[in-house]
Write a protein that binds this DNA or RNA. Structure first.
Lengths: 334, 334
DNA sequence: TTGTACGCGTTATCAA
DNA sequence: TTGATAACGCGTACAA
């Protein structure tokens, strides 16, 4: 009763393996009754076609990869949910890869996918915009790739992003309207596409509001909480900004810790706004004003693009831009 | 330059496929220089052995499944990190499945894994303790399974849990010491093993402290935020507890929302403690007292048990119990 | 140390 | 409608 394969099942039923196989494939002609009989017996014996044999034979895995920088983050977990939803409908499985924001892991994951493990990849980038040769290999192998949120500009594939420039512009004006004049912009990777857009929106909003732009107020942070804590402590003590604009959720969190510890009152002394999908933003002390991205929709859209490529066997190059929403809360109240 | 297989590579090198194959397998005898030559050329041509062919041939996938109820949760994302860490060391890949706390999805995932897709499964259960026949099938197929945190008592496999009873007992005493006399216990699934343990710790602590136990104060909640919000609103208005003990993080979050909206001051009017791995518990308003589980270690331990089973080809039945830690914060200050 | 040949479990093609 | 057979790409006896 151990491992049962198609041959044993066929013998048990006095049928050929081809007939049995047909019972499991939707299309081929097969007598409805024999099909019933086969499937019934298969259930009894707990038979399922071996995935690896099928994939080998059909030259596809019915599996897609999702590559994200981190998991413990509402934005990504919602996006993943959206992707999985679509994949499930299409009968595909999903493989999740977490890079922990390490570029090297991203490279290694992608390299390990070219062996046919997956039929396509949906990714939010982790790295610096450096050497993307590992991604070009994918194209050679006709492995479709779709980016969402964090993209590499120099890679010509389908991308799903949000209107980062506009959001950033509006968020900056929101701070200014709340009375801020000395706004620090906290960013992790200025050079990554998403960082660039967000910085530019900030700079242009300052200009539009006739507030002089000060290069020193663009604060380069890291992915390490400890380092960020130190960087931001110094910023608060020496630069004394009256507004903080976090390009990434974790920088808002770090700012909260610093302000709590230094006894800097939010929003009285400093106002904070952040790109964030944090569900419990309303419960923070004080509640955090966020620019929230439509994470679920982004995931769904990205998956749809990937499947269009998979189904047409043709590359897809759509650039989809969805809209984020600013949700004002106490951290920026005047 | 499209898809390249072992034959083409072999021809290119004037070698046989077996020799090429050997270059990629650790063990077999092969001349060091030819191996070098093969690997070098493989890199050039971007060749990688086809996963499905290998798996079919070797009858294993070098992949394990991780099944969790949810992703947007620090506990699970840390546990996953632990599991992946171990898996990576062993050269295994991980497949993450999210059930959204739906028992049916769990069943369907597991059923879909028996086809050789994975070599083993690490799971935190989603369901009610009902029909576990789908799990018994795994045993028949010699597919090892390890539970962590949320387990089914009636399934005899390796399990990694925390000292839930003790933690619950101590947490209840913590509330009592802070002055609570009317403590509501919020739970999602009383019948699931983990719920039972936590409830019992609560009940026994009341007894030990000579506080009468009131059945009505055990509040059965759901996985739906909206429903929980309504349930808890009613609880706060009618039962007027002075302490809330949340068996699960999301119930603490829901409680916060309710108290904020009803203007019930925490901790003055009601004190709250919760099982939770929330990283930003200190930033909540007020900061949340938590019972925090060693999520990463649990993941690592679970993975180690699974690999022991995989490596020895024998079932493993260890019951590992790790310790949680109570971290007092403002939500329970006297 | 290398090569030959078979089989892993499926499915598609073709013939019956 | 069903059955026989070849092939998917690889790894390993076995022979050389």
């Amino acid at each position: 009763m151990d491992k049962i394969d198609i041959k044993q099942l066929a013998k048990d039923l006095n049928l050929s393996t081809s007939t049995v196989s047909r019972a499991f494939r939707g299309n081929s002609d097969i007598n409805a009754k024999t099909k019933e009989r086969i499937l019934a017996r298969a259930r009894e014996l707990n038979y399922q076609p071996n995935l690896y044999a099928s994939s080998l034979r059909e030259r596809k895995s019915k599996t897609i990869a999702i590559v994200v920088p981190e998991l413990a983050n509402n934005f990504f977990s919602q996006a993943i949910r959206g992707i999985e939803q679509v994949a499930r409908e299409k009968g595909y499985h999903t493989l999740i890869y977490v890079t922990d924001d390490e570029y090297q892991k991203e490279v290694s994951f992608i390299d390990n996918m070219s062996n046919g493990r997956v039929d396509g990849i949906i990714m939010s980038a982790s790295g610096e915009s450096k050497d993307h040769n590992y991604l070009n290999k994918l194209k050679k192998k006709h492995m479709p790739l779709v980016f969402f949120d964090r993209v590499y500009d120099d890679i010509d594939v389908a991308k799903v992003t949000t209107n980062d420039y506009d959001s950033s512009f509006n968020a900056t004006r929101h701070l200014i309207a709340a009375g801020c004049r000395r706004i620090a912009f906290l960013v992790i990777n200025k050079s990554l596409s998403i960082g660039k857009m967000r910085v530019q929106g900030y700079i242009d909003a300052l200009k539009a509001e006739h507030i002089p732009f000060n290069e020193d107020l663009i604060i380069d942070c890291s992915n390490d909480h400890r380092k960020n804590y130190n960087i931001l402590s110094k910023v608060m003590k020496t630069l004394k900004p009256d507004g903080l604009f976090a390009a990434v959720e974790r920088l808002a969190i770090a700012s909260y810790y610093v302000c709590h510890d230094l006894g800097i009152a939010i929003p009285r002394k400093v106002k904070i706004i952040s790109f964030s999908s944090l569900e419990i933003a309303p419960l923070l002390n004080p509640s955090l004003t966020t620019i929230t991205q439509p994470a679920l929709e982004m995931g769904i859209k990205a998956a749809q693009l990937l499947f269009r490529s998979l189904e047409t066997s043709a590359p897809v190059h759509d650039q989809v831009v969805l809209k984020s929403k600013i949700i004002p809360r106490k951290s920026t109240s005047a």
